[in-house]
Amino acid sequence: MSSLEIKNLHVAIGEKEIVKGFTLTINSGEVHAVMGPNGTGKSTLSKAIAGHPDYTITSGDVLIDGQSILEQEPDERARAGIFLAFQYPSEIPGVSIANFLRGALQARMAEGEELDASAYYKRLYQKMDLLKIDRKFTSRSVNDGFSGGEKKRCEILQMAMLEPKFALMDETDSGLDIDALRIVADGVNAMRGPTLGVLLITHYQRLLDYIVPDHVHVMYDGRIVKSGDKSLALELEAKGYDWVKKEFAEANAR
């Protein structure tokens, strides 16, 4: 059992503070949904945790099993078990998905150790069958010319292969039609289990019909302003974010 602790995190892009005291602990086995209006710092949060160089953590801490990861490079954090499913995954022309994943797995092995190629492909095909992905898919270049749905599927396949301790899923539902959404959700649900903790960032309730969260948090102005169970998401759907904004403004005024 592992834990990802985000403690009073403040994140700035340049001079501008975006995340303002975000606190949350995710244990393996749990799925936390973070919802909120646009521009409230949801994506910034996930990129900062993953170590993107454009985001400066001005105070607070992020710990895996009590160990701070803030001094680590993005690749060290990844190897420590953080996986970020990108909202807009990069294209890597000329590098096949199969070779990319192979490189990523090889990077997790000790010096001098070689990945067993046949075992690798066996596992890759297993995961692809599970996610209902055509086998021809892995010979295509990573995200190169992919549709929105293919890009998200590619993210999910990578997640399945890299078996992270914690997955940060940044607006995974954006740009997906309902069929693609279902495939992605089925994939995440298949990976759910006692060894995986998930932070699900979304703007809409829609995704939560398919991936049912254990906890729902509402993020506004850079921090969590309300937490609850899955019913909170339904309440948000019914009332809209204005309700949260109003409540937040009143709380600040008092």
Partner: peptide
């Protein structure tokens, strides 16, 4: 930078 970050996020140096 985004491409490099993306690859680093998968564990590559």
């Amino acid at each position: 930078e985004e491409m490099i970050f993306y690859m680093q996020q998968r564990g590559l140096t």
